[in-house]
Each structure stands twice: as structure tokens, then as C-alpha cells.
């Protein structure tokens, strides 16, 4: 019962008593009739609660919203109810994602580290990372993505965060998993931006550190004959000192 050990107690503390009762009712309904999740999962925010959990994260880019946590509890109830029916959980989670709006998809992605659905998790994360929706991309780099993405897919996800200006604080255990290949990819992105005279997300330096090939390339840009490239290089190197 990871909900009890993880988000569960915290969510219950955040809910007013009537919302807590409605969540209990929905959980009991799904435990008794797992197919009810098809209509209860989309309605969960309206029926129980919605809104930010952390004041600095109003749209749930860095971590789950209240409705994400509510939906997680429903998915855990579904998982437990279907424990004896092989394949059924993966089938229903796929349907909830496919027929979900952006909020429902995000909740599924955020729950993937709690659901043993094998390759299906990888497929759903792949779909999210193909989208250009910052909320889905951020959720795909959370604990679920950490667990299910292979290293190549994970690196491309981190790079996509930089492209979409998703803060890298959204990436679960970034420092632990970052490797020289990711630094090479991010360095290439930074050099390309500066060569175009464009700005670089400051978060790139969280991956790069003092990545020598990138720093060398930017220092070379300081001597560019083009003012816009020199300015972009100065700004990027100044950001490095600030991080």
C-alpha cells in the first residue's frame, strides 16, 4: 500500500473532511467495481479536490497537484482490485491515458512509478515525450520516467525540458542520473543557441557544470565577428557563474 506510505497521508491532511469522505467513497467504489474508474477518474478533480499543493508550483510542473494525488489514490485502488487479473491493469491505464485530457494524462504519468504495467509505462511515457505540452513532458521526467525510461529516452526527455523551458527541478534525481553523454547533448544545444545569437536556459548549466568543450566553444564565440553572437556568449557564460 504505497499510497499509505507515500502520498496518502499527506493528501488526506490536505483535504477537508467532505472531500476526504468523497475520496473514500470513490476508492471503495473502484475496489468493488474496477470498471467504475472509467468515469470516476476523469471526474475526480470535480468530485474531490483540485489545485496546487506547493504555492510555487501553481500548474503542477514541478510536482503533483491535488487532483494528481487524488487520481493516484484511485489508480492504486484499481491496481489492488485488479491484482489477480494479469494484463487488465495495463489495459485500463492505457485507456485512461488515451481518453484522458491533459490533466488526466498528467495524473497517469505521475502514477507510473506505483504501477507494475511493464512495457505499457514505457509506451505512455514515449507518447508524452513526443508531445509539446510542458505539463506532460515534466510529468514524464518524474519518478515514473526515472523508473521506466531507458537512458537514451531519459536523456532526450531532459533535453526536451530545456527546449520547452521546463525547469530541470521537474526531473527526478537529475544529478544522480546525468552522464557525460547528456552533457555532450546539452552542450551542443547551448553552442547552437549562442551561434544563432539566442539566449540559453540557465538550467542548462545544472547539467553542464564546467563542461570544458562547451565552455571552450563559448569562449571562442566571445571573439565572433558578429555582435549578437558575442553578446549571447557573454550572457551564457555569466549564467554559468550564477548557477
Amino acid at each position: 500500500m504505497s499510497a499509505e506510505a507515500g502520498h496518502g497521508p499527506r493528501l488526506r491532511d490536505l483535504l477537508a473532511p467532505p472531500a476526504r469522505r468523497r475520496l473514500d467513497e470513490l476508492t471503495a467504489e473502484i475496489s468493488a467495481t474496477p470498471s467504475a474508474v472509467a468515469t470516476r477518474f476523469p471526474a475526480a478533480a470535480r468530485l474531490v479536490a483540485r489545485g496546487p499543493v506547493r504555492p510555487g508550483d501553481p500548474s503542477g510542473l514541478l510536482g503533483p497537484t491535488l487532483e494528481d494525488l487524488v487520481r493516484l489514490v484511485l489508480l492504486e485502488a484499481l491496481r489492488d482490485a485488479l491484482a489477480d487479473v494479469p494484463g487488465r491493469l495495463a489495459q485500463e491505464v492505457t485507456a485512461l491515458y488515451r481518453f484522458g485530457d491533459s490533466d488526466e494524462k498528467r495524473a497517469v504519468l505521475r502514477a507510473l512509478d506505483r504501477l507494475d504495467i511493464g512495457e505499457t509505462a514505457h509506451d505512455l511515457l514515449g507518447d508524452a515525450l513526443r508531445s509539446n505540452d510542458p505539463r506532460l513532458v515534466a510529468a514524464a521526467l518524474g519518478p515514473g520516467g526515472h523508473r521506466h525510461l531507458d537512458q537514451a529516452g531519459w536523456r532526450h526527455g531532459v533535453l526536451k525540458c530545456l527546449f520547452l523551458e521546463v525547469p530541470l527541478a521537474a526531473v527526478h534525481r537529475l544529478a544522480e542520473r546525468a552522464d557525460p553523454e547528456l552533457a555532450r547533448m546539452v552542450g551542443g544545444f547551448v553552442v547552437e543557441r549562442v551561434a544563432a545569437g539566442r539566449g540559453v536556459p540557465a538550467d542548462a548549466w545544472r547539467v553542464l557544470g564546467d563542461h570544458p568543450p562547451t565552455v571552450r566553444a563559448l569562449r571562442a564565440e566571445l571573439r565572433s565577428p558578429h555582435a549578437d553572437r558575442r553578446t549571447a556568449a557573454e550572457l551564457a557564460l555569466a549564467q554559468r557563474r550564477d548557477v
Binding site: 472509467a38 468515469t39 476523469p42 471526474a43 478533480a45 485507456a95 481518453f99
Partner: peptide, 10 residues
């Protein structure tokens, strides 16, 4: 067969 999922949405 799928419509009820959509009828539940905000």
C-alpha cells in the same frame, strides 16, 4: 461504448 468516459469530464 467510449462516450461515457467523455461524459464524465469537466
Amino acid at each position: 461504448d467510449v462516450l461515457p468516459r467523455y461524459l464524465a469530464k469537466d
